[in-house]
């Protein structure tokens, strides 16, 4: 980005104050969850906002055992990693074709994929479920990986298409005219250039898959994923907030830790993608 002048720098400093306040508010839920996860339910009811008095790790132990976190964890990791990998490959291929290549029915295909983004999930549950049963994918991790891919694909394809369409066209054209095989163009040109978008998609899709409850409830009934275990910690009418907080902290921890560890790589990955025009 263009470098800021002296006066402009001062303005940026002033702007950073409300941004810092916003950042504080975003840290608050983390504090809230951690702080309450250390309280017992009675302590929470008596004082919801105060700092924990007698910290207990009981909630973590309970959340761990009651929601079978050890066995569910593996299911979550396998299905999330599988689905995200599949999503990245399928959506960058499709985005490349839709944004760059010239072929008949491109418009129609793009519209169909875009339209499928708008289908309310409830309406497709029963036929979706029957398809899963029909394909013999019920209660398999493969089934869940394919389901996640199918559900989050329209969003991913759309993002990749938008991103590739925004790239300077000459780059792609040059690669194509070179007479390179298109699969090589994809791998050596489109994937590296698409890195910022692919990283973003990786983050968002990881989050979507990891946090999903509904699809996993249907497809993986006798094994379950982590978030389903956590969701089941909520009672019929009451929620034991400390217990649930502990569950959510446990479930969110891998994501947050990964995000923070790879923050530098993510930032530089996105920066590397910046093209010279």
């Amino acid at each position: 980005m263009a470098t800021a002048g002296k006066k402009e720098k001062r303005v940026l400093w002033i702007i950073s104050i409300p941004m810092a306040i916003l950042a504080l508010s975003c840290v608050y839920p983390v504090y809230f969850a951690l702080n309450n996860a250390l309280k017992d339910n009675r302590g929470y009811i008596l004082d919801r906002f105060g700092l924990v008095q007698n910290p207990t790790f009981d909630n973590f132990v309970q959340a761990w055992t009651r929601s079978n976190l050890d066995t569910y964890f593996l299911n979550s990791v396998v299905t999330t990693v599988g689905a995200v990998a599949l999503l990245l490959v399928v959506s960058s291929l499709a985005g490349f074709a839709l944004a760059v290549l010239r072929f008949p029915m491109r418009r129609l295909i793009f519209i169909v994929i875009l339209a499928s983004l708008m289908i309310p999930v409830q309406v497709v549950l029963v036929p979706f479920y029957q398809t899963i049963i029909g394909l013999g994918l019920l209660n398999t991790r493969t089934g869940l990986i394919i389901s996640y891919t199918a559900f989050f694909l329209p969003f991913s394809v759309y993002l990749m298409t938008s991103f590739y369409a925004g790239l300077p066209r000459e780059l792609v054209e040059a690669a194509r005219i070179d007479g390179a095989k298109l699969i090589q163009v994809w791998w050596y040109v489109m994937v590296p250039m698409g890195r910022p978008a692919l990283i973003t998609l990786g983050i968002l899709n990881t989050l979507y898959c990891w946090n999903d409850v509904l699809i996993s409830l249907l497809v993986l009934q006798d094994q379950r994923t982590l978030m389903v275990g956590i969701a089941a910690l909520r009672g019929e009418y009451t929620t034991n907030v400390p217990l649930l907080s502990a569950g959510i902290v446990l479930a969110a921890a891998p994501i947050v830790i990964l995000y923070i560890i790879f923050q530098r790589q993510i930032v530089s990955g996105i920066a590397v993608g910046a093209v010279k025009g």
């Binding site: 169909v112 289908i119 497709v124 029963v126 036929p127 398809t131 199918a150």
Partner: peptide, 10 residues
């Protein structure tokens, strides 16, 4: 994927 899992159910 989109046809089988989204459009046909729709």
């Amino acid at each position: 994927l989109v046809l089988v899992f989204r459009i046909i159910p729709l």
